[in-house]
């Protein structure tokens, strides 16, 4: 079985790595790292960071790691997003694994080519196919092979970035069952508003 690089523990934490709440035990992706007000937040899917628990105060770890990396501090009441504050001694870099430094936040647009790094599929590319108020649908590129896995279990929380600028545009939280790979994501500005991180 090939090594899942995203599940490994790096010297410095970065987006794209696998994280979980030990009390939930369903790993997902550290979607984004963001510094605000003296704290550094990791942003991910609520069902990964808290599951069905209230979640505030829960520790977050890397499944392959041995120590807590963050504490859940912000949980959306209505959307599948949450944020945890990194522990002060946790080393990190404001980058995404395999991609690098992100650009400034962008509003998603129809037809936008996007990439993400998920803790299961690694870097994948798609195109924004539909936008509603709180939801963005991303599909594989038109000429992608039928079997192309845009996303997989473990990718929840990964952030779609505009392909060229690497600007965050939406956060992946669910997928379509039993068929072609489709990602459902929350527009990035909505995530930041919901978690009071604008």
């Amino acid at each position: 079985m090939p090594t899942n690089n995203q599940a490994l523990v790096f010297g410095k934490l970065r987006a794209g790595l696998q994280i979980f709440n030990p009390q939930v035990a369903r790993p997902g992706t550290l979607g984004f790292l963001l510094s605000k007000g003296g704290d550094t937040f990791i942003i991910g899917a609520k069902h990964v960071l808290t599951g069905t628990r209230p979640g505030l105060g829960d520790p977050i770890r890397q499944p392959a790691g041995t120590s807590d990396i963050a504490i859940v501090r912000r949980v959306s009441a209505t959307l599948d997003c949450a944020a945890a504050v990194l522990n002060p001694d946790q080393k990190f870099v404001l980058e995404l694994l395999h991609i690098g430094v992100p650009g400034p936040a962008l509003t998603p647009a129809l037809g936008m080519r996007v990439i993400k790094v998920g803790s299961t599929t690694g870097v994948t590319e798609g195109v924004i196919d539909r936008i509603n108020d709180n939801e963005v649908t991303v599909k594989p590129l038109r000429d992608a092979p039928l079997e192309y896995q845009l996303t997989e279990h473990g990718d929840s929380g990964s952030v779609w970035l505009e392909r060229d600028s690497h600007s965050p545009v939406a956060m992946h939280f669910s997928a379509q069952s039993g068929g072609a790979s489709v990602s459902f994501a929350i527009p990035w500005p909505v995530v930041l508003t919901e978690l009071d991180l604008l």
Partner: peptide
């Protein structure tokens, strides 16, 4: 109609 599923990984 295809349904959706959350995309967290499996428990141990």
């Amino acid at each position: 109609k295809r349904q959706r599923h959350a995309e967290a990984a499996l428990t141990p």
